[in-house]
Amino acid sequence: MKFYEVNEPYYALIKAKNDENAMTIYTDVVADDDGGLSEEITEVTEAYATIIYSRVNGEDNNVIPVKEVLEHLTNEEEMVLVIDGSLL
């Protein structure tokens, strides 16, 4: 799996097999593509994604447990890991 970050129009950290899948996940879950998404999406390292994801609060506003962070980062499921808080 690879990790992708989008900063505009809304922040998201996505785990996907490739950038095309990451863009599809972004448009399905976060926001529509206004034509500039391909320029806004960037691949980030696993270490960077791990640090960002481990610092995010979960649904109960508590830090996500390490075991859960590792499970989400290492399983084969494509997913949004972090989403802009204004969208929740």
Rank of each mutant, 00 (worst) to 15 (best):
G85F: 05
I52S: 02
Y48T: 00
I64F: 07
Y26K: 04
E68T: 15
E40F: 05
V63F: 14
N75H: 07
A31K: 05
E59L: 13
K2T: 09
K2W: 07
N18C: 10
L73K: 10
Y26Q: 05
L70C: 09
L73H: 03
K67I: 10
S54Q: 11
E43G: 02
G58D: 12
D28R: 12
A47T: 08
E43I: 02
L81G: 00
V63S: 15
N62R: 12
T42K: 12
Y10G: 04
E46M: 01
L37F: 08
E20Q: 14
I52N: 00
I83E: 15
E40I: 01
A31N: 08
A16T: 06
E46W: 02
E46V: 02
E68H: 08
L70I: 11
N62A: 13
P65C: 10
V6W: 01
H72S: 07
D28S: 14
Y10E: 02
T45M: 00
E39D: 10
L37H: 06
M23H: 00
Y10K: 05
I25W: 04
A12L: 02
E20H: 09
G58L: 08
D19P: 03
A16R: 02
N61Q: 12
N18R: 09
G85C: 09
E78T: 09
A49L: 01
T50E: 14
T74F: 14
G85S: 14
T27K: 12
D34Y: 13
G58C: 11
M1S: 11
K2V: 01
F3Y: 15
L87W: 05
D19R: 15
D32Q: 11
N62H: 14
I83T: 14
E39T: 08
Y4L: 04
T42P: 01
D84N: 14
K17H: 06
V63D: 06
K17P: 02
E8F: 10
K2A: 13
L88W: 10
V63K: 15
E68N: 08
